Every structure is written in C-alpha cells, then in structure tokens.
Computed example of a mutant assay.
Amino acid sequence: MIARLLSALLAAGCTAASAEPAPEADVLSIGGSVTEIVAALGQGHRLRARDSTSTWPPEVADLPDVGYMRALSPEGVLSVGPDLILSEDGAGPPEALDVIRAADVAFVTVPDAVTTDGILRKIEIVGAALGVPDRAAALSDAVATDLADAMADAARPDAQRKRVLFVLSTQGGRITASGTGTAADALIRMAGATNAVTEFEGYKQISDEAVGRAAPDVILMMDRGGDHGAADDELFAMPAIRLTPAAADRASVRLDGLLMLGFGPRTAEAVRRLNAALYDEGA
C-alpha cells in the first residue's frame, strides 16, 4: 500500500520541496513539545490535527489524532488535509515519512532538545514555519528567563544532591532506566539532583546488581501507570529496588511524561515541580 501510494505521488510530480505553507496554514503537529510551542505562540487555532503524544494544552484532545508519532500511517496523516506538518525529529517509520514528504504538503522537522538552547531553537524553528518570528522571539526570551530562574533556585552543592533513578519501564519485572544524554538525565540535573546511572547513554534495561550499585535515593517515573509507572507497593517489592535507599524511605516521584521529557515551553515548571518533590519543598 505504501509503495503504491508513493509511486502515485511521485508520478504526479508532487514533492515536499515545492510545497510552501499558505498564510494561516492549517497545521498538523506531530510531537508533544511541538504542539505545546504552537499553542504557546498563540497559533493553536491553526491546528487541524495532532499525534497521540500531543496532550497539552488540554483542548488539543478535541483534535483528530493521527496516531503515535513513531508509528504513523501516510493515509492517516494525509487524510486530515494539513497545509503544513510540524514534526519532532524521530517520527516514523521512515517509509511512511517518505510518502508523506512526497505529498504536496510543507514538512518541517523540529530537532530534539535537552538543553535551554535546544528548547529556544525549537521555538525559533516553529515560529519561522508558522510565520510568527516576533512571537517566537518573545516566547524564547520568556522561556529562557523562566528556566534560568528555575535552575538557579534548584541549584545546590554536590554533597546535598539526591541520587535519582529514572525508571522508564518495569515490564516483565526488569528495570529499564535512563543513563546519560536523555531528557530524563537533563531534567534530573536541572532540578538540582544527580542521575544515579551514568555508565551508559540512553535508556537501557539494567541488571538488579546495577540498580544496587546505583543506590538511588529516589525513584522517578512517569505518572501514566502500567509498565511505565508501577504503584509503590509493586515498585519497592521488586528485587532490583527493595534494598536501595529509595525503598527504605519509599521515596518515589511521579510526574507527567510530557511535562518531564518534552523539553518545551513548560520545562521550567518541570524543574520546579521535580525539585520541590525531591526536597520536600511543596509542589
């Protein structure tokens, strides 16, 4: 099906390179942080559809959902008739993107970010694509100031920084955790804590022994339940975790996944909320 659709589009001479979004173009936003940026720029009224990771602001729930950003179908994406597609890097699968890019629709990729500068670059790219660079500049200034203030408030000496283990999944009784170079790692450090796992990059399944060596003071998880957010009784009964300092204190923190890992306009809020939860300073 994908191959036939791609052949038909190519035969018709439709290319993404020739497509230019019209003023006030209808937008399909793929990726939660991109959707947040569109809304923060005051352009939410232009959103025609969104992907399933786009859950903020709440009103986007009323928009058509084209599916999970890493499992898109060309038919689903193109059926909503966007003039402009704004997509976080990492959308896919690649063969689906080939078909989508071959259609007569402007397609802009927004790079991932785990730093302040990266967030500001995302805002700049989305603002330029939407034709509102002045609004993007103003939003960037506000986000940069707010995030700098939040990080300054969260800062503390190394000796006082709690060791935090971000657990992505407990599927099958095995811990998948964050190493370095991830959004979770970056947020933990911004919030005045230390990532308990630094032996590898990315998210990986780790052994019970590795969890013990990490000796986390706090377990950090997303709040969506299931394998991604086991309840405390289940979490602290796991052999990998039950002998850690976190288990001794039943110390766990759960935050909204998009707020924590999206690295969009609300990242300063994520820093403040995580810092408050870690150091008992109120949410």
Rank of each mutant, 00 (worst) to 15 (best):
P133K: 06
P57Q: 11
M221W: 00
T194Y: 01
S73F: 05
E59K: 14
R224W: 10
R242I: 11
L120G: 11
E95L: 13
W56Q: 13
V218F: 03
A39W: 08
F166M: 07
A3S: 12
L10S: 13
I188D: 07
S140R: 15
A240K: 04
L274A: 06
A16S: 15
P239F: 11
H45R: 15
R273I: 00
I123F: 09
R242L: 11
R161L: 07
S252N: 09
G212E: 12
F107Y: 15
I188K: 09
H45V: 05
A16N: 10
D62C: 11
A191D: 01
Y279D: 07
D223T: 07
I206W: 05
L261H: 07
M1P: 10
A138S: 15
A91F: 01
A106V: 00
A136R: 05
L6E: 10
A191H: 01
A49M: 08
R50W: 00
L220P: 08
S73C: 05
A106G: 02
S169W: 06
V80P: 13
D158P: 03
A71V: 07
Y279T: 03
Y68Q: 12
R46N: 04
A71T: 12
D185Q: 11
V211G: 00
D223C: 03
L6Q: 04
D256Y: 12
G31P: 03
D83S: 05
L147D: 08
N275T: 11
A142K: 15
D26K: 14
N195Y: 09
V143G: 11
V105C: 03
E88M: 14
R189E: 15
S178G: 13
S87R: 00
S140A: 15
D83E: 13
G262Y: 04
D223V: 03
N195L: 06
A246G: 05
E281H: 13
R272F: 03
R48W: 01
I241L: 15
S7V: 07
E281L: 14
R101Y: 08
I175L: 14
I37Y: 03
G202I: 04
L130D: 04
V110N: 02
A276E: 10
A103Q: 01
K162F: 01
A49F: 02
G92M: 02
I85C: 09
D141S: 14
P58I: 04
A247R: 03
T194Q: 11
V164A: 06
A25K: 03
E88N: 10
K162A: 12
P216C: 09
E209T: 07
S252V: 10
M260T: 11
L86C: 09
D256T: 13
L97P: 00
F107P: 09
A8H: 13
A138N: 12
R266W: 04
Y203N: 03
A144R: 14
D149F: 01
V143L: 13
P82I: 02
A138E: 15
T35Q: 01
A183N: 11
A152S: 13
P245F: 09
A19I: 06
L187G: 09
G92A: 02
G118R: 02
L243P: 00
M238K: 08
A183H: 09
I37N: 02
G257R: 06
A129P: 04
T267V: 14
R70N: 04
L278H: 05
I188N: 06
T35S: 10
G127Y: 04
M238I: 05
G76Q: 06
G179T: 06
